[in-house]
Design a protein around this nucleic acid. Sequence first.
DNA 1: AATTCGTGGAC
DNA 2: TGTCCAAGAAT
Length: 360
Amino acid sequence: MALCQQLAHALLAYYDKHARSLPWRGENDLYRIWISEIMLQQTGVSAVEKYYPKFLSHFPDVQTLAQAPLQSLLLHWQGLGYYQRAHHLHRAAHYIIQEWQGILPEERELWLKVPGVGPSTASAILAIGRNQPHAILDGNVKRVLARFLALQESIDGRSGQKILWQAAARLTSKIRPGDYAQAIMDLGATVCTRTQPRCDQCPWQMACVACNAGNPSAYPLRNTKKAKPNKCEVALLFYNSEDKFYFEQRSEKGLLASLWQPCSLPWSADRARPDAATIRSLVQESFAGHVEGAVELLTPVEHLFTHFKLTVYPYRFRVHRLFERAPYCWLPQVEWAQLPMATLHQKVMHSSLITKPLPG
DNA sequence: AATTCGTGGAC
DNA sequence: TGTCCAAGAAT
């Protein structure tokens, strides 16, 4: 146990010299720390830096967050990914006001009741915000500890994670757990990196089993991932006589939850791209719609999601009499630019308008 | 326990 | 080009 605290001390000494300067460092407002931890889930620091200040200026406290429309949260979240997090934040704000009169909890067990807050995030919030002695276990810590222990088990499996949690708890500083949590994440991000770890700069070099064995890059072990299937969609960019475009809102659950998009239909990945005539009959059959003028074939958009690859074939044309699928809206460009939309659909809409102005 | 959730940068 | 993966949680 004494050895563990020596290691913690060495890491803290490293941190005192080399800590990264980040917008959420030095905060003691649990609300602001909470927001940062949610944004940082599976998301790079450089991406979060672009969203964190704006989000906080629009939603400076729990009350503001709860009172804001979900669409407003999603708009400030768009492009950041994992949109369920924005839904969780909204639900969480209501929950905190309902159950705790808007006061953020100071106990880990209570934070675990908050939607979107799991074991590592709950620990991080109270370690960083209140210097409580909780251990975190994120991607950085898993990599650092797997190398430190030369862990022969996958960090994805139950047994491997159990070992890692125990190691994380033992190694955490009892005096400065908040700084320790940020220090070990910094270490993983800047020294114990995925490729080409800089072991010569590591405060744990002498005790690291993998480094002493000369093969730190062999760790961590991971489960084999299955291949990403190819999927395909047709995007129908309807516009009317007022040059307003048609949009639909996605389901409030699942992929890109509650975001807006042009009308989209699944298309078998092994079928060729449909031609103009096929699109005309498709619109007639599926929407009782009538295409006026030419069907424009726009540039296909490819997009990589976490577990599949998507190709979108966009088409643009004027329609007359359309069976609409609620929830929907017709908006001119200046207004649909304010709809929360995924990066994928921004790409689709962007290419369709910038490269080709509306005919007539 | 295994999947499902985005996006962009590094290599 | 493809592959990996980042302050994980929910289901």
